[in-house]
């Protein structure tokens, strides 16, 4: 009986995913309503709940896809995978204002460059503080602080050790997770309540999943604006980190 049930859940993974995420959403909104009286948005709690489940999944299986590594919850992997994520993000643009997007063009370019360079510098500085003195390792960890994709791309291009590449991915993951959790908390302080600031935010912070989840938990209407800017961030990071930023690092640490 249990076996049959289990089989049905595994075979219809995507449906299981709908049920699990639906239940999680309901519970999160219930908590937001009752415990915080709506002060913390339900989706912020849901995203945090998702991260907790990902941690539990990781502990249980030792894999790297969180809850989705448990066969019963493999459907979560499809539901939250890149394909459907991009698909639904694009859908949020329906009804967004073209004029708002165009108006913020130049400041978004500034935000993209500033965001990539500042994050790289922070990561690089921390690497130096922890005793790294070779430009390749410093640049790879700096790149990881940009996003968890820029890190390994840079590390592979420069020939960093796998230990350093793993650290750079971890730094990028930490960034994405902090952005997911902290965005709704700091939204008021940084004035994140209009399309213009949302685009600047997307360009400066940049990490795709962090921006996507952070804005969803702040104000879903702002999602397309932030994501539109963030979509250029990883690309710019992959362009700058292994080239200009690495060369600049080598000027200071010539090994």
């Amino acid at each position: 009986m249990i076996d049959l049930l289990n089989q049905a859940f595994v075979k219809n993974g995507l449906l299981t995913g709908f049920v699990v995420v639906g239940g999680l959403m309901w519970f999160a909104y219930f908590l937001a309503d009752r415990l915080t009286r709506g002060r913390i948005h339900g989706s912020a709690i849901a995203v945090f709940g998702g991260l907790v489940l990902a941690y539990v999944g990781g502990r249980l299986t030792g894999g790297k896809n969180g809850l989705a590594d448990l066969p019963v919850f493999a459907g979560i992997g499809l539901l939250g995978g890149n394909m459907l994520r991009d698909f639904s993000i694009v859908a949020t643009a329906y009804g967004a204002s073209f004029d708002d997007l165009k108006k913020s063009g130049l400041p978004v370019v500034v935000a993209l460059f500033a965001g990539v360079i500042v994050s790289f510098l922070c990561g690089a500085a921390v690497a130096v503080a922890f005793g790294y003195r070779d430009a390749v390792s410093i640049a790879t960890i700096g790149a990881g602080a940009v996003t968890y994709i820029v890190g390994p791309v840079t590390g592979a291009a420069l020939g960093a050790t796998s230990e350093v590449i793993a650290l750079s991915i971890a730094a990028g993951l930490v960034k994405a997770i902090i952005v997911m959790i902290a965005t709704p908390l700091v939204a008021k302080v940084i004035g994140l309540d209009n399309p213009h600031t949302a685009m600047i935010y997307g360009g400066t912070v940049g990490t795709n999943s962090g921006v996507a989840a952070g804005l969803a938990a702040t104000d879903p209407k702002l999602v397309p604006y932030g994501v539109m800017a963030a979509t250029f961030y990883t690309g710019l990071g992959c362009l700058l980190a292994p080239s200009v930023l690495y060369l600049a690092t080598r000027l200071i640490f010539p090994h």
Partner: peptide, 18 residues
């Protein structure tokens, strides 16, 4: 469906590695 999909995405992050 965007928010539930983002929640599903959060549930498969490599939190352990982070």
């Amino acid at each position: 469906m965007y928010i539930p999909i983002v929640v599903a995405m959060a549930a498969q992050q490599n939190v352990l590695a982070a």
